[in-house]
Design a protein around this nucleic acid. Sequence first.
DNA 1: GCGACAG
DNA 2: ATCTTGTCGC
Length: 224
Amino acid sequence: MISEEEKQVKSYPEAATTSSVEIQNWIEAQDLLKKKLIKEDEFEGDSLKYVGGVDISFLKEDSSVACGTLVVLNLQTLQVVYEDFSLVTVQDPYVPGFLAFREAPVLLELLERMKKRDPHLYPQLLLVDGNGILHPRGFGLASHLGVLANLPTIGIGKNAMRSTADSLKPIYISIGHRVSLDTAIRIVKSTCKFRVPEPIRQADIRSREYLRKFQMGMLKRETS
DNA sequence: GCGACAG
DNA sequence: ATCTTGTCGC
């Protein structure tokens, strides 16, 4: 007889420690939070000046070590006005459809820290590296983060689920929270100097750089 | 049975 | 996510 856990392991080899019970809890949590999801424009004020971007990078040698990154850009100049990093040990594995449970905790921590340190630069909207309502249950990382942080968010996917390889590499924009699709598309377009919108791109670049420098420091300690 | 499956 | 340097082009 095959247990539920065994089926889970067969389905997701990388998630050997994730039980079907945990998956069920995650599904319930998503369905619960989803009730608070707002798919229309609902901003604090009408002046959109600061836009945030979040991303997470992982250490290739030890994929449980990750660097969460938050950057804030001036929407008008697209210059970075704030950056913060958090080196953490990620416990939860990556399970397709449940990215938020792996990445949201660090990102929320970074947002909370900023709210205390630099509230005047706190973003009115956040671009998230991951999908919003473009998700099996309509509640991806961008929506998850938006609801928990009560912040307007937009999801940016670079690989759509179940898509065929297109010659053109598109990005997939989806509503995260408290923003309409029309507004989301308009804002994303206004932040694109290259394929990937600048807030996400800067978070990605700086996140990798942070890990690279961290590794150099580690190597120094081992050698000395 | 086979392929797909955000990061 | 990560594996990866130089190289073609604006």
